[in-house]
C-alpha cells in the first residue's frame, strides 16, 4: 500500500493517477480541443452553407489575375487592332488581328469569372499584389511589359515598316510580361478554369513571341 502511495501521482496504469492528470490538462487542454474542434466544425459548416468559402475571394490570386490580365490584354487588343488596320506587312496585319480577337475573347472569359465569383472588375489591392513581390514589378504603375503612354503615342503615329517593327518590339515585351503573370497564377491556383486559360496563354504567347522574332528578322528590324 505504501508503495502505491509513492507511485500514485506518476503511474498512469493505476486509476488513482487519472484525476490529477485530468486536472493538469484541465481547462487549457479542453480549451485547445475546443479551438481545434471549433475550427473544424466552422470550416465544414462554412463550406456547406457559405458559397464564398468555395470560390475565389476578393484578394485571391485568381481574382487578381482575372483583373490584371484583363487590363494587360486590353492593351494588347489596342495594339493588335492598330496592326490589323495599318501594318504594311500582311503577316503583321494577320497576327495583329489574331491577337486582338483572341485576347478580347479571353477578357470576356475572365470578366465572366469575376461575375460568377460575385467580385467587381476593380480590386481594392494594388496591381499585381496577388503575386509574390508582384507590386515591386510595377514600372511607373504599369504592369510588366505594358507600353507606356509615350510608346502608345509613338505607335499610333508610326507608319509603314517603322510601324511594323515598333509593333513587333512592343508586342514581344508585352507578351513576355503576360507570360510571366500567367506562369505565376499557374503556381498559385488549383482552379481548373484558371489553370486551363493561363497554361494556354503561356504556350500560345511563347509561340507568338517566336513568330514576332522571325518577322522582325524578315523585316530587318
Amino acid at each position: 500500500m505504501s508503495v502505491s502511495v509513492e507511485s500514485d501521482p506518476e503511474s498512469p496504469e493505476i486509476d488513482d493517477a487519472v484525476p490529477p492528470a485530468r486536472r493538469r490538462f484541465g481547462v487549457a487542454g479542453w480549451l485547445a480541443a475546443g479551438v481545434a474542434l471549433g475550427l473544424l466544425l466552422g470550416l465544414v459548416a462554412g463550406l456547406l452553407i457559405v458559397p464564398s468559402f468555395t470560390r475565389p475571394g476578393e484578394d485571391s490570386a485568381e481574382a487578381g489575375f482575372a483583373r490584371d490580365m484583363s487590363t494587360h490584354h486590353a492593351q494588347a487588343v489596342e495594339m493588335g487592332m492598330l496592326a490589323h488596320q495599318k501594318a504594311s506587312d500582311s503577316d503583321v496585319r494577320t497576327l495583329g488581328g489574331d491577337i486582338a480577337l483572341t485576347q478580347q475573347a479571353q477578357i470576356g472569359m475572365m470578366q465572366a469569372w469575376l461575375r460568377e465569383w460575385k467580385l467587381g472588375p476593380t480590386g481594392s489591392q494594388p496591381r499585381m499584389a496577388w503575386m509574390p513581390e508582384g507590386s515591386a514589378g510595377l514600372e511607373n504603375g504599369l504592369m510588366p511589359g505594358m507600353a507606356t503612354d509615350a510608346e502608345r503615342a509613338q505607335l499610333r503615329s508610326a507608319t509603314g515598316k517603322a510601324f511594323d517593327v515598333l509593333f513587333l518590339q512592343l508586342m514581344i515585351k508585352h507578351h513576355l510580361g503576360g507570360i510571366h503573370m500567367a506562369e505565376e497564377v499557374v503556381k498559385l491556383t488549383d482552379n481548373a478554369e484558371v489553370l486551363r486559360l493561363a497554361q494556354g496563354m503561356v504556350a500560345n504567347q511563347r509561340n507568338e513571341v517566336a513568330a514576332f522574332q522571325q518577322l522582325l528578322t524578315k523585316l530587318g528590324g
Binding site: 485530468r22 481547462v27 480549451l31 475546443g34 471549433g38 466544425l41
Partner: peptide
C-alpha cells in the same frame, strides 16, 4: 474544462 471547450467550439464555429 468541458465548458471551456464547448464555449470555444461554439464561439469559433459561429465566428467562422
Amino acid at each position: 474544462g468541458p465548458i471551456a471547450m464547448f464555449v470555444a467550439v461554439g464561439v469559433i464555429a459561429a465566428g467562422i
